[in-house]
Design a protein around this nucleic acid. Structure first.
Lengths: 147, 147
DNA sequence: GTTTCATGTAACTTCGTTTATTACGAATTA
DNA sequence: TAATTCGTAATAAACGAAGTTACATGAAAC
């Protein structure tokens, strides 16, 4: 199956932006995350609607974070991206008339709901500031220091 | 995204088979789970390799459970199906050279790993016997009694 | 033994989803 | 006005699951 990697992408972009004074263009972001500028705009556009980043057109334009890193959680970003489906496994139908299917779905749904709740809780406990700090730690922890 | 519904399918099939004395043909199973007989064979074939079901060709042939319902867990079935990817969300790359990506991936992987562990634990606690019992409960609990 | 039933399996097609790309428009700066 | 950069629609490519077709194999019934 094809996994939605937008959360990962967006985080990558945001942490890069956090390390920068000025704005970054879609082109720069696309280069560092190995994707296409239009994909960057499309995805970052969702964050802009949520007020997490700002964009500016024209020369000297680009993307810039407009929220406090310490208050933005990964869960919030997941929601901003439209809460894409978390699981690649699921039930065949959602409103089964068959009692067997009802029993099966009930059991599976229980397990999946629990796992989803845990995941969202964990994502809610991690902020962009945490990621930036972890990056700094990794950056300091190596002899040479590139980006 | 297209969700892998084989676990759900297989459970549906197994509980139906558990309610039956004789074997069920791929055609019958396909009919009750609204899919194609070949898909049934393909999927049930994996369970056969694991010794969970047996198949017989020719007249009076079909599929039959060959394991104790109380000992087969949903987790075991998930593994038998080849442990398909659980999440529809994931990292872009797995071996990033970029330190930013490493930090991002580490955080995400932690959360996803935890959620996956919980899910597998829960699936490991549910047996086919539990599902069959739940079905019986639902079956008894309704006025009319069809399948 | 021939017929019929049913699985075994390899190919191929269809379908849905994500990502990539193209193309053009709009705004901003110099 | 020219260069830069975002905004967005439309389209294509890539991928994987499920569905379908086609034909082979084996077992029972007569």
């Amino acid at each position: 199956m094809k996994r939605d990697s937008r959360l990962s992408s967006v985080l990558h972009a945001l942490v890069h932006m956090a390390e920068r004074e000025g704005p970054m263009t879609s082109e720069e972001l696309a280069a560092c995350m190995h994707t296409h500028p239009v994909v960057v705009r499309r995805t970052m556009g969702l964050l802009r609607e949520a007020g997490l980043v700002r964009s500016a057109r024209g020369p000297q334009g680009g993307w810039r974070i407009s929220a406090d890193l310490g208050t933005v959680t990964l869960r919030q970003l997941h929601e901003t991206l439209g809460e894409p489906a978390i699981f690649a496994i699921g039930n065949r139908q959602d409103m089964p008339g068959c009692l067997v299917e009802q029993a099966v779905n009930a059991a599976l749904d229980d397990a999946f709901t629990e796992a989803e709740a845990l995941l969202l809780t964990r994502l809610g406990q991690i902020t962009l500031a945490d990621l930036a700090a972890d990056f700094s730690r990794r950056h300091a922890g190596r002899r040479e220091g590139s980006t």
